[in-house]
Amino acid sequence: MSGMAAVGAGGAERPRLSLRWREAINFYLFLAPWILGFLAFTAIPIIASLFLGFTKYNAISPPDFVGLKNFRFLYDDQIFWKSLRVTLTYTVVFVPLQLVSSLLLAMLLNLRVPSMRTIRTIYYLPSILPTVVTGLVWIWLFNADFGLINFFLYKAFEIRGPNWLGSERWVMSAVIISGLWALGGGVIIFLAALQNVPGEFYEAAELDGANILHRFWHVTVPMISPVILYNLMIAMILSLQVFTRIYVLTQGGPNYASYFYNLYVYDNAFSYLKLGLASAQAWILFVLILLLTVLALRTSGRWVHYSGGV
């Protein structure tokens, strides 16, 4: 050990770093790649976008500070309000539908039947397929004259189906239906939660005479309510940020009827060279998502039950 101790000039022993300090240095050294990555690719761009939101910036010339002009412009911009209305309408309709469908599907996939693993895999497949590819398939399915959906409607009910993607009235329904197809992510989380509900709770409820609906409402729902909250927040955030599927399916048309918020952000940034305006829009969306998330969390105390009463 003595050989390990360094002797400095003048024979004084060099003070060694304490274990706590050495651990801290090691900790930050290991963390450094991720901290640097976070700073370079997330934190700094976020801060930069906040600054750019108050500028006129086209990426070619230096940013020009314009104060609140971008926000005032958006306040008066019909397309901004339309895109916000489209996005919120989608979220309000799609999120509950997605949650209910995911939960029902998860309950079906929780049954003990042969080949259930294979069935679960099949149901998860849409979630791992590229959105662009599935978008192209949906374009075919929704085609007014050649699409399978209208073909089925006509053959089964003799109904002439609508022009799903070309009609202002129907395009939102088409977008919602296409979104409901890929429920895999939410289903997996619900499935895991369902499998963690202790079986004795159901047995006790059954002994007390609870039927299947009672058991679902008074046992299953409370027991998985934290997961419902989690899925609700994730679905809400993703719905407000939907982009790729719409870009492929409709490009926001017709007449802006499916012009989602992020599509407008993208157009302003990369098609119209208005990066300052797009940054302001991005921050408005951020604040909106933050408010809705806080609202969901605040109200969750009334219906979310954590085991142990936490």
Binding site: G166, E168, G252, P254, Y259, D267, S271
Partner: peptide, 16 residues
């Protein structure tokens, strides 16, 4: 691109 988007979006209801 902005004029083009404006035109294509608003012409949609006519062409459909």
């Amino acid at each position: 691109p902005e004029w083009n988007r404006t035109f294509n979006q608003t012409m949609g209801p006519i062409w459909n």
